[in-house]
Design a binder for these strands. Structure first.
Lengths: 102, 102
DNA sequence: CCTATTGTTCGTATACCATAGAACGATTGA
DNA sequence: TCAATCGTTCTATGGTATACGAACAATAGG
């Protein structure tokens, strides 16, 4: 169990968040999290290998888009809605609205 | 004078637009255009060579973020605000607001 | 014409990203 | 203690981005 690094709210960057959201796989993850709250990595049915999925969760976490906590052998992911809304008001909502339903 | 390809509104993709906006140089271009309307490529004082700048204008154009028209030896760039607002409501505004003043 | 201006295109080098398989670590449950 | 589960980390690879200089094309102005 290693400490997962989460950037503080102040150090989130717009370009970093936009880049994190610009990948189709990562966008699917974010959309799922927006609908369902905390979900483990294995519950997403992503079209990539688990090592690749892990990479995408890491990119999202390091960009400040998601918060990850360990529970047993699972890693529970949640959107950092408050932080994103505070730093980039309206951005997440417009992305979620534009991307449509899952 | 070659025809510059502009994707039609319907074929703009969210991931494509987000990716185009996720580069610092391109974000600066977009912010300038949001403030000043139509501007030629040479008026941006970008920290890259002109060939690189040309590449970034091309990425923005092919993602559907900007419209480019030739006037004499200059290429005048404008934001595709209406198309972006129609396809991805609120997205451009939130990005511009989040990125702050130039 | 000739030249200057404006920006594109080409060729190339470097760096980074998405992807996957294999190995590993941590936890749970039998 | 042993096996199964869940996800990460390591390593490698193919593809793509970004960057620059040099060469090119088109236009405007003298």
């Amino acid at each position: 169990m290693r400490a997962l690094h989460h950037p503080p709210r102040e150090s989130l960057t717009l370009t970093g968040v936009l880049y994190a959201l610009s990948d189709p796989v990562r966008l699917v993850i974010v959309k799922h999290l927006a609908e369902d709250g905390g979900k483990a990595c294995g519950t997403f049915c992503l079209p990539v290998a688990k090592s690749t999925a892990s990479h995408h969760f890491r990119v999202l976490r390091e960009a400040g888009v998601i918060q990850v906590r360990q529970e047993g052998t699972q890693y529970i992911n949640t959107l950092r809605r408050e932080d994103l809304d505070a730093r980039f008001p309206g951005l997440l909502d417009s992305v979620l609205r534009a991307s449509g339903p899952i």
